[in-house]
Design a protein around this nucleic acid. Structure first.
Length: 327
RNA sequence: CCGCCCUUAGCUCAGACCGGUAGAGCAGUCGACUGUAGAUCGACUUGUCCCCCGUUCAAAUCGGGGAGGGCGGACCA
């Protein structure tokens, strides 16, 4: 797999391909980042971007994980003290999940976002950006709730972070694309270079298979799920015998194999009673998906293999969480 | 600062005028059917009716106060 392919695989969008191709020519030492509002327990959405970070580390890039405490505060997620506690837990879970400690720089937003220079640049950006423009960028993230002044400052800070963390590439889920577009438009207006961005897909809702659901509702899988929780949740998942169900729906079981399981495992063993043909081994997503569609792989067997794989993925983080809570 | 509208189940809302302590759809849960889930049947659950005070035998409903949310109040006069 060449560098460009590794960098862009499993992404929903590359902005722009030309710019990323240029990075891929010499990825060594290039700085990329994802920003997360601190959360006490990681869920699959976090892990999906983390998988991408691992790809980028494998390509030789330096990864910066922004623990966005100030952003969380602006988004009304609690007091600074609470937020910083969960930031520490988040870092520990990422390391347990498999981010390379030597190649990953964890940065607390408040460590630079309150500096005078940053603050003045932020004001400059506020002068350059219309309210409507900033609100539009946040609409996806903040849907429903009352728009606060903090909500329009939020994306402007994300734009500035890209400059202040000295990044070459920004990563985020598709829910972040409008913010990244705003950053590309507004950074130049205050004298900085725009940077390319990669967006990971948003996995469909496990229970219903509905296209884009926010992680806040529906069934979510997180670092604190027990083996039994996983079996239960995966078993209840929507899983028709096709990768392209009717309407707006997707097949979340296949998506989880594609975006969470195969990127992290060399092979996936499907344990199956002899009655149904015995065990199966898959080395790539495509063959598994093809077998599911042809009927050679029954959805129920796919599900038990998925639950077991997810359990393996989560186990180290779950264990670390347990230790943290015992302290 | 002033004015108008809104607030009832997880969600969208009905009920308010003509007081009798609450409903629908969707969601959810449980069974049946499929070697998964969904779909389809069958059954079931869900409430600080925004808060406080008052009137009344009785208030989601009427009166007063308050909170939160939405919208409006430029100029032409």
């Amino acid at each position: 797999m060449d560098a460009y392919e590794r960098i862009t695989r499993n992404t929903a969008e590359v902005v722009t391909e030309d710019e990323v191709r240029e990075l891929a020519e010499d990825p060594e030492g290039k700085r990329v980042y994802v920003g997360y509002e601190p959360s006490g327990v990681l869920h699959l959405g976090h892990l999906l971007t983390a998988n991408k970070l691992m790809d980028l580390q494998a390509a030789g890039m330096e990864v910066v994980v922004l623990l966005a405490d100030v952003h969380a505060y602006l988004n009304d997620k609690g007091t600074f003290e609470e937020i910083r506690d969960t930031a520490d837990q988040m870092k520990e879970q990422f390391l347990a999940y498999g981010l390379d400690e030597d190649q990953t720089e964890f940065v607390l937003g408040s460590s630079f976002q309150l500096d005078e220079e940053y603050e003045l640049d932020l004001h400059a950006m506020q002068v350059e950006t219309s309210l409507k423009r900033a609100q539009r960028a946040m609409a996806e993230i903040q849907s429903g709730e009352t728009a606060k002044v903090s909500h329009v400052v939020y994306p402007l800070m994300q734009a500035l972070d890209i400059e202040y963390l000295d990044l070459d590439l920004a990563i985020g889920g598709m829910d972040q694309r409008k913010v990244h577009m705003l950053a590309r438009e507004e950074l130049p207006s205050v004298g900085y270079e725009k940077r390319p961005a990669l967006h990971t897909p948003i996995i469909g809702d496990l229970g219903s298979g509905d296209g884009k659901m926010s992680a806040s509702e529906g069934v979510t899988i997180s670092m604190e799920d027990s083996t039994e929780d996983l079996e239960e949740k995966v078993n209840a998942a929507f899983c028709p015998r096709t990768r392209d169900p009717e309407g707006e729906k997707v097949n979340p079981v296949l998506e989880l194999f594609q975006y969470h399981v195969f990127p992290r495992f060399e092979e996936v063993v499907v344990q199956r009673p002899d009655e149904y043909g015995g065990d199966l081994v898959y080395e790539e997503y495509e063959t598994l998906a093809t077998d599911l569609e042809s009927g050679d792989l029954h959805p129920a067997d796919a599900k038990s293999a998925l639950a077991s794989a997810l359990d393996d993925l989560i186990e180290p983080g779950r264990e670390r969480l347990r230790e943290l809570r015992d302290e």
